[in-house]
Computed example of a mutant assay.
Amino acid sequence: MTLVNALPPEFDRGVVTTVHQGDCHVSNAVDLTLSTVLGSCISACVRDTVANVGGMNHFLLAEQSGAAKDRYGASARYGAFAMEQLINKVLSQGSGRKSNLEIKVFGGGKINAALDDVGRKNIDFVHEFLAAEGYVSVSEDVGGNYARRVLFKPHSGRAFVKRLDNASGANVAREEIALAKRHVIIPAPITDIELF
């Protein structure tokens, strides 16, 4: 007998690490699964296909500026930081070659009208970021009007997405609205460096 919501038999969860909003985890452990729940947020899963090192981030672009050259405002700098942090960690723990990277993108759902389709802005942002950096996602599950749980095996690159019911989506929406109301804090650039 097979359960409708069961994982495929070959997708053994092993040790599960939850990736929360603002987190970035990278590993080469064979038995590790990275897990997150997304509404409007985006998670990128990046893997070095040669070194079998991979990771996942989770970010929400919470504010938009009116400046034409700064389309997403301070939060885009946070999204760019989240993407660069993940890619750099995978490169430094892996082969160091951008050509070996495989990228998968998840999330960006419109799960609450109060979020002014932040999900669409997140999808646009991540596509523009990847294009500007010369990357293409090999697969993605983005958009829609539902929340999703994403499981990612950083060693093998396998990913599993489960679309969540309305009750779960409502919980995710409440959490994201609370996050969106807070200001995104961007680390200040280092301007004074002393070499010794």
Rank of each mutant, 00 (worst) to 15 (best):
D117Y: 05
F106V: 03
Q21A: 13
G157M: 01
G66I: 12
G157A: 00
P9H: 08
L32Q: 15
V53C: 12
K110R: 15
L38G: 07
R120T: 15
D192A: 14
D165S: 08
G22L: 02
R120D: 13
V150D: 06
R47L: 03
A173V: 02
D48A: 08
D165I: 05
Y72I: 02
A147K: 01
Q64V: 13
G169M: 05
P154I: 05
D124S: 14
L179K: 11
G109P: 06
N5E: 09
L101M: 04
I123A: 05
H58M: 07
K181M: 12
P154N: 07
K89V: 00
S43V: 02
V126D: 01
Q85I: 00
N171C: 06
V161G: 08
R148T: 11
R77D: 09
A180P: 02
N145G: 14
F129E: 01
D12M: 04
S75L: 01
G73M: 05
S40R: 04
L38C: 07
Q64F: 14
N28Y: 07
I87G: 11
E63T: 12
G109L: 08
R71S: 04
A132K: 12
P154H: 07
R163I: 13
S40A: 15
L34A: 05
V126T: 12
R149G: 09
N57E: 09
D116P: 00
V26D: 05
A44N: 10
D165R: 09
D116Q: 06
I190E: 09
V90R: 06
D165P: 11
G54A: 12
L60H: 11
F160Y: 08
Y135L: 07
E10I: 02
F152G: 00
F81G: 07
D48R: 09
D31F: 11
